[in-house]
Design a protein around this nucleic acid. Structure first.
Lengths: 254, 254
DNA sequence: CGCGCCGTTGAGCCCGTTCAAAAAGTGTGG
DNA sequence: CCACACTTTTTGAACGGGCTCAACGGCGCG
């Protein structure tokens, strides 16, 4: 259950991959998957806190996150950073429009142990010429990321601290939910996110995040214990803060 | 010069379009442009304040903005809205990943008189199958939008009122600049944006926007007079607030 | 010239910050 | 299993940036 203990590794054949249905290569036919697999250059296993790619460095690979949590962020200076998004299993990392020769506009770091499937970005152009469906799918995923970023903008720009935080929790709750075949009965998810990260994601101090979480907890809306988040009644909480479940598009289904 | 007086209209043939080099169809060969033109369903001329498409309504067209200013926004409720982005000539509007059958995740409204080229989104899939380069270009543009949204997130999350506002002004300044073949000598641009819109874009009250603009003006950094913005020394201002000119990718060049 | 939108200014309040410190995990090596 | 270091969470007190409420001035347009 925990993402931090023994770490899951992708199977030898993409065909049998359990996150494929969420991931970039879902719409391919069986024979096409074998072709696509040739483009994969390997797996990567990383401990918590590893930098997967760094702001400003050349963009050489794109990754499909197979297991674990990753966060994407921008450093403004020594003291300030903005977390742009959290990536969950099945999500694509490191694609920024340049098929080759570009640099990363932000950084990505693992919060837990993670395993990644690596695809050299130099090959993408060829791959998409051969399989237009893949290109369309990539476009769709990029547009979904956009919709999510816009949702986050509305949060940071126009919502109170409580609503921003609750929004983030609900978003992650539902996103994680929709990729679990058998969700837990008590509405709890694995949640390896520190309060400081929450603050960096929603534009608040860790201290104020703490106070606000306390408030949500005392009101019975949420519970956080040893890296587990429980939201007893997510729909009611969503109602309270104006969370639109519909904005969480199934990130990776065409 | 003004965008609000007599309004420019696209030429009959896309081949001769002056914004094509910025726009979606730039990478096509001459013969391909004629083919692509068949997909265009017409032009649209709209007065200031027109809703081009509306949050939640079915997504039937994508648009290339030929002239004028447009802003994209989300309404949270009666009192609160978040402006996500401003669109300038050459920018693509209304593409959200669904080639057909989806709904708009946000709204778009004209600030000035605008003219638009309309493409039915139902045709996009066929179009991109026929011309893979177009698909790749679309992906690239969507990814650029993403990078911009991420930049905005960092602003709203981690910057002061002054820096947010200056950032927005500089961004629009440079974006408009890079599509003017002959920029004005005095570093001024046409700027039909109200202070309330600035507030809705950077997450502040119109009142506080006013005070902050006053401060920037009194310090000599900017000047705003009758819908004209002047930034005497944009590079120095960028230096002051940590603006990275590099993040303004030439929105539409592959 | 009168109406509506936009910009400007003042006064007071409040949400979220800053600074400071202690308590409660978490992981490591002996 | 404990000791130690380090990270994360929690709480308090005081400050301040940005908000709210209120009013007035200016400009464009019918």
């Amino acid at each position: 259950m925990s993402t931090t203990s023994t770490i899951a590794v992708p199977p030898a054949k993409c065909l049998h991959c359990k996150v494929r249905k969420l991931a970039l290569f879902q719409p391919l036919m069986e024979t096409e998957i074998h072709a696509a697999q040739k483009y994969k250059s390997g797996n990567q296993l990383l401990p918590p806190g590893s930098v997967i790619y760094h702001q400003g460095h050349p963009n050489e690979n794109v990754y499909t996150l197979f297991s674990g949590w990753v966060y994407l962020y921008k450093d403004l200076d020594e003291k300030r950073r903005q977390i742009l998004d959290f990536a969950l299993p099945g999500d694509l990392l490191g694609f920024h429009g340049d098929m080759e020769g570009g640099t990363h506009p932000h950084s990505a770091q693992s919060l837990t142990s993670v395993s990644l499937c690596v695809f050299p970005s130099t090959n993408l152009l060829r791959l998409f010429r051969k399989h237009p469906k893949l290109g369309i799918r990539l476009t769709w995923m990029t547009a979904s990321d956009n919709a999510l970023a816009h949702e986050h903008l509305a949060s940071l720009g126009r919502r109170s601290a409580r609503d921003r935080i609750a929004h983030l929790l609900l978003e992650l709750f539902y996103r994680l939910r929709q990729r679990q075949p058998e969700p837990t009965e008590d509405n709890s998810i694995d949640f390896p996110v520190t309060q400081e990260m929450i603050g960096d994601a929603v534009g608040l101090t860790a201290i104020h995040v703490n106070r606000t979480l306390m408030e949500l907890r005392r009101a019975g809306w949420i519970e956080i214990k040893s890296k587990t988040l429980t939201i007893p009644d997510p729909d009611a909480l969503g109602e309270l803060i104006g969370f639109n479940r519909h904005t969480i598009t199934p990130r990776a289904m065409i």
